[in-house]
Nucleic acid binder design. Structure first.
Length: 484
RNA sequence: GGCAGGGUAGCUCAGUUGGUUAGAGCGCAGGACUCAUAAGCCUGAGGUCGCGAGUUCAAAUCUCGCCCCUGCUACCA
């Protein structure tokens, strides 16, 4: 059983059929904030992320590129590792679903689930062009003809193993409703409840090996491999060494599992079903973030030519500016837009003008009036209950809003007190008091920013902590003079 | 089609159980200052609260109809 001193947070595992995009980056950053915040509160933390590597799409991609599947996944998985490093993500683990450990444990889990697994015939509409089954609704919409290949869908059947998900719908619903299993935000929670109300059917969890053999073999049946989703979900516990490892005992259930809205049902309906069948606890929170769009809510995609890579933003503006923008200006409970213009506007007004300049003017005054010596710094005094509440609810945007209110408050204080006037009047004791108070505020702000912008927060804290300010300090965020 | 959530200042959004001149940030304009990254502070302009009807002494807030947007609708991950 996880204790209140231990904290386990995960991201979903990106599927490695393409390069990392902004959505992946944002998810890593969000989970990282939670992990850093927990560590700051003296908890023992396991923060896990990784890559999902099986399934037909990967196999197809490799075939398309004429390269061994494993080689493709190695390359693509590495791209995610590189991004994680670039974003200053503090993950403790990085699991790949192709790891031997995961595969072994997935088989073990399959064995344990056997009481809820049965063999059945899957009947569906199959397009020989797409090489995949289409849903009943899709077939209806297209009048039984595949629009991509202009050929009729065939009625095909195959042997599959099924998982008795329907058995667990009552319990899942109850746990969501009584919030012992929290789905954040409410819109996603309602979505899942509606889904369950409509009835959860048993799901197919294997594929015949002759159609696809890039996957984990079903134990005791070498004609079948596990369906990629079924096995990928298990990473959240295999990475802890389920069932026998101490980490599993110490850290499960997860405190927060961060996912994107597109995979909600897998994490709030199917995943709980698996856990209930294994007779282990559900995660405490599944937090579902939204998508990042281009200006005007337009979808960002390579084919539209409006896709922006995380790398390009970080390289231009720095990692903390990146983290700040996506945490504060993409609504934590919804979708948001990214554009270079918006990013730069935010960078200048909030990071350069407000935060950066406040630090700058404070150090400048301490240097000019007191030779860099601050003196006794009073303890922090602001009420941060709101900040804490927002973080506990994964409301990253509002938590940062609280910090910025403090920064604005400090600027107002400075203009009211006018330390430069006090300096001229010669009341050096009063001046010292005012400057020390300003310092105290900035130290508190630095502390609150630690989970969000680790490097910047560190810089602010080391600037003031010793009680002596260095002579030459470079601005935290130099203004961007845009060439328009 | 069904279910859910939206449409509020140029932009991004707040608006608690219906109640005095509808709010914030950005952007814009003006002012006083000078410690600072020409940053910060103060003041101001700007909205028939999607459209139409209804309930009410009173509606952005409730009811009905219509228009528009987004998500989910279960086996692509």
């Amino acid at each position: 059983m996880s204790t209140k001193d231990n904290y386990y947070v995960t991201t979903s595992l990106p599927y490695v059929n393409g390069a990392p995009h902004l959505g992946h980056a944002m998810e890593f950053v969000m989970a990282d904030v939670l992990a850093r915040y927990a560590r700051k509160n003296k908890k023992k933390v396991i923060f896990s992320t990784g890559t999902d590597e099986h399934g037909s799409k990967i196999a197809e991609k490799a075939k398309e590129k004429n390269m061994p599947i494993k080689e493709l996944t190695d390359i693509n998985s590495q791209a995610f590792k590189d991004l994680i490093k670039k974003l200053n993500i503090s993950n403790d683990r990085f699991i790949r679903t192709t790891d031997a450990g995961h595969q072994q444990r997935a088989k073990l889990i399959w064995e344990k689930l056997k009481k809820d697994i049965y063999k059945n015939t899957y009947i569906g509409w199959y397009c020989t062009g797409c090489e995949e089954y289409k849903s009943e609704a899709h077939v209806k919409e297209t009048n039984g003809v595949c629009p991509d290949h202009n050929r009729k869908y065939e009625r095909l059947e195959e042997e599959n193993y099924f998982f008795a998900l329907s058995k667990y719908q009552g319990v899942i619903k109850e746990k969501i409703e009584n919030s012992s299993f929290r789905v954040i935000p409410d819109t996603r929670r309602n979505e899942t409840l509606a889904l369950i109300r409509g009835g959860l059917e048993d799901i197919s969890i294997s594929r015949p090996k002759d159609k696809l053999d890039w996957g984990i073999p079903v134990p005791g049946d070498d004609t079948q491999i596990m369906y990629v989703w079924f096995e990928a979900l298990m990473n959240y516990i295999t990475v802890l060494g389920y069932p026998e490892h101490k980490d599993f005992a110490d850290f499960w259930p997860a405190n927060v599992q961060v996912i994107g809205k597109g995979i909600n049902r897998f994490h709030t309906a199917i995943w709980p079903g698996i856990l209930l069948a294994l007779e282990i606890d559900l995660p405490q929170i599944v937090y579902v973030h939204g998508y990042i769009n281009a200006v005007g809510g337009q979808k960002m995609s390579k084919s539209l030519g409006n896709a922006v890579t995380p790398d390009s933003i970080v390289d231009t503006y720095g990692v903390d500016a990146f983290r700040y923008f996506f945490l504060r200006h993409i609504p934590s409970y919804g979708d948001g837009d990214y554009s270079r213009e918006r990013f730069e506007a935010v960078f200048n007004s909030e990071l350069a003008n407000e935060l950066g300049n406040t630090v700058q003017r404070t150090t400048a005054m301490i240097n000019q009036y007191q030779g860099g010596i601050i003196g006794d710094i009073p303890p922090a005094e602001h009420d941060i209950a709101e900040y804490i509440k927002h973080l506990e609810n994964c409301h990253f945007d509002l938590a940062l809003e609280v910090v910025w209110q403090q920064i604005r408050g400090l600027n107002q204080y400075i203009d009211e007190q006018k330390p430069w006037t006090i300096a001229k009047s010669g009341d050096m004791d009063h001046l010292k008091e005012v400057l020390a108070y300003m310092t105290s505020c900035l130290l508190e702000i630095g502390d609150l920013l630690l989970p969000f912008m680790p490097e910047t927060a560190e810089k602010i804290i080391t600037t003031f902590k010793s009680g002596v300010v260095a002579k030459e300090l470079t601005p935290l965020f130099p203004r961007i003079e845009s060439v328009k």
